[in-house]
Amino acid sequence: MFRFIVTNNGSGHSVAGLRYKEYQLKDYSSWFLKQLNNTENWKRLKGCLVKTQDCNNLAKKYKTLKQYKSAKLTPIEAGCCGPPSECGYPPVNASYYDLSFHPISSNKDCKLYKNSRAVKCYNCDSCKAGVAQYMKTEWRIVAILNLVLFIVLSIIYFVGCCARRNAVRRRSKI
Rank of each mutant, 00 (worst) to 15 (best):
V148G: 14
Y89F: 15
C81Y: 01
T137V: 07
V142L: 10
T52L: 03
S126G: 10
Q53E: 14
E77H: 08
G88H: 00
N37K: 13
G130T: 03
N146I: 11
V6N: 01
A94S: 14
L33W: 00
I174C: 05
P91R: 04
S100F: 09
N56H: 07
T52Y: 03
K136G: 14
C110W: 00
L73W: 02
C48S: 15
C110M: 00
F150N: 04
S105G: 04
D54P: 02
D54M: 14
E86P: 00
N8A: 15
N123Q: 14
R164C: 08
Q24R: 09
C161E: 13
M135E: 15
K72Y: 08
A59R: 09
Q67R: 03
K43W: 01
N8L: 14
M1H: 05
N9I: 13
P83R: 03
C121F: 02
R169A: 10
R169T: 10
D27F: 03
F32A: 14
K66V: 02
E86N: 09
P83F: 04
Y157Q: 07
P84Q: 04
L99S: 02
G47L: 04
G79K: 04
H13S: 11
T64G: 06
L149G: 11
F158I: 11
S106N: 15
N9Q: 11
C55T: 02
Y28H: 05
R117G: 10
A59S: 14
V15C: 07
Y157R: 10
D109Y: 00
V168M: 12
G79C: 10
Y68G: 04
Y122D: 08
K114Y: 03
Y157L: 08
Y89S: 09
S106A: 15
S95K: 02
T74F: 00
L149D: 09
N38L: 01
D54I: 10
K34Y: 05
Y96I: 11
A129D: 08
S85M: 15
D54T: 12
Y23H: 13
P84F: 00
E86S: 08
R165L: 10
G160I: 02
Y96H: 13
Y97G: 02
S116H: 08
P83G: 11
S70M: 08
R140A: 14
C162E: 09
S126D: 08
D27S: 08
Y113M: 11
P90S: 13
A16N: 10
S100E: 11
V159D: 06
H102S: 08
K46I: 01
I141K: 15
L18C: 04
H13W: 05
S95L: 00
Y134V: 03
K69S: 09
Q67M: 06
K173D: 03
Y89H: 05
Y96K: 12
V152D: 03
I151D: 06
T39W: 05
K69R: 13
S11K: 15
C80P: 07
N8F: 13
L153I: 11
P83M: 12
A78H: 02
C121N: 14
T137Q: 06
T39V: 10
S105R: 06
K26A: 12
I155M: 12
G17C: 06
C48E: 14
D125P: 00
E77V: 06
F2D: 07
